[in-house]
């Protein structure tokens, strides 16, 4: 993939040359390697906390209403042995992936077990929307070859972009990172459509009492205080949220400081919903890491060694 020419891509040359920098930027394999460690560690946290409801669902077979993909895969209602089997496979796969053992194989094992796990988590009434980017990440991470050789790439890159072990960057890594980035952005952008459809117009939603509603139903003491003392604050907050969602695709084209500022802005948004409503959206928030130059997060000792 990394050395595929436009002629060999199966796409017309003009389309290919325009798509290439957009969807296939040559990005450091070391970045992907760092992201793998972060995301697989998060998947461990996820199945043990946020999506742990799969274990409880084993007792609620009467609530089982499988989503389309679960029906397509003919998944039966989850049972306790099945839930624990999936859990063990996910945990073992993540441990291997974090350790860097056979990255593509361990990543594939995680993907094959984690997707049914998430289908079960979301087939008992409520369908959550905070896992889309993480599910995409788990699916695309195993598609990248050469990650195991990226260990030393940030330190030993030659002038021609290769290391002693192979290329330091790859378009396949760029695609995987881009796919996760697009999934992150889509999580916000596509939430604008139902706001228009369900509320009649964006203005109706922006001027509604949705945050008051959410605060009364699940708000923290701070949120309840806001409802009582400064209820006017919710309308501008709703419009600010709408702006963040509608403008989210812009982030895909930002660079350096502007990009980091944008990432901080969206993470700040999640921090405020966490403090006010107890909604953390962490599975999406963690995927913002796909926008960052993680390869620079080297062990301090090693960097000092090379900067001499």
């Amino acid at each position: 993939m990394s050395s595929t020419s436009a002629e060999g891509s199966g796409l017309p040359v003009s389309t290919s040359s325009r798509l290439r920098p957009l969807l296939f930027p040559a990005l450091p394999l070391a970045r992907l390697r760092a992201l793998r460690v972060l995301l697989y560690a998060f998947v461990v946290l996820d199945v043990l906390t946020f999506s742990r409801d799969v274990l409880a669902h084993a007792h609620n077979a009467g609530f089982y209403s499988p989503v389309a993909l679960a029906r397509l895969l003919q998944l039966p209602a989850v049972t306790t042995p099945l839930a624990y089997a999936l859990l063990v496979v996910i945990l073992a796969g993540c441990a291997a992936a974090i350790a860097g053992w056979r990255p593509r194989l361990s990543g594939t094992v995680v993907a094959i077990a984690y997707w049914p796990w998430m289908l079960y988590s979301n087939s008992y009434g409520y369908v959550a929307h905070d896992h889309m980017a993480l599910m995409v990440a788990v699916a695309v991470l195993p598609t990248v070859a050469g990650v195991e050789r990226a260990r030393s790439s940030a330190d030993g890159t030659r002038a021609d972009g290769t290391t002693a072990d192979g290329p330091a960057t790859s378009e396949a890594a760029g695609w995987a990172l881009r796919a996760i980035q697009i999934a992150v952005v889509a999580t916000y952008f596509f939430s604008v459509i139902p706001k228009i459809l369900y509320s009649g117009s964006l203005a109706n939603w922006g001027n509604s009492a949705i945050l008051t509603w959410a605060s009364i139903r699940r708000g923290s003491s701070l949120a309840h205080w806001l409802v009582e003392v400064t209820p006017w604050v919710f309308i501008p907050a709703q419009w600010a949220g709408l702006a963040l969602e509608a403008l989210s695709p812009v982030v895909l084209f930002l660079r350096e400081k502007a990009l980091y500022l944008a990432v901080a802005l969206y993470l700040g948004f999640h921090l405020s919903t966490l403090v006010l409503l107890g909604i953390h959206f962490l599975p999406t928030a963690i995927c913002w890491a796909a926008f960052l130059p993680l390869e620079r997060l080297r062990r301090p000792g090693r960097r000092a060694l090379h900067s001499r």
Binding site: F190, K195, Y198, I210
Partner: peptide, 24 residues
């Protein structure tokens, strides 16, 4: 998924969390 308001297409279904604006 968004246009048909379908949650069935998870994980690519409608992203309708908090999308029904509450009447003030």
């Amino acid at each position: 998924g968004g246009l048909t308001r379908s949650n069935d297409l998870f994980p690519f279904g409608v992203l309708d969390q908090f999308s029904s604006g509450t009447d003030p």
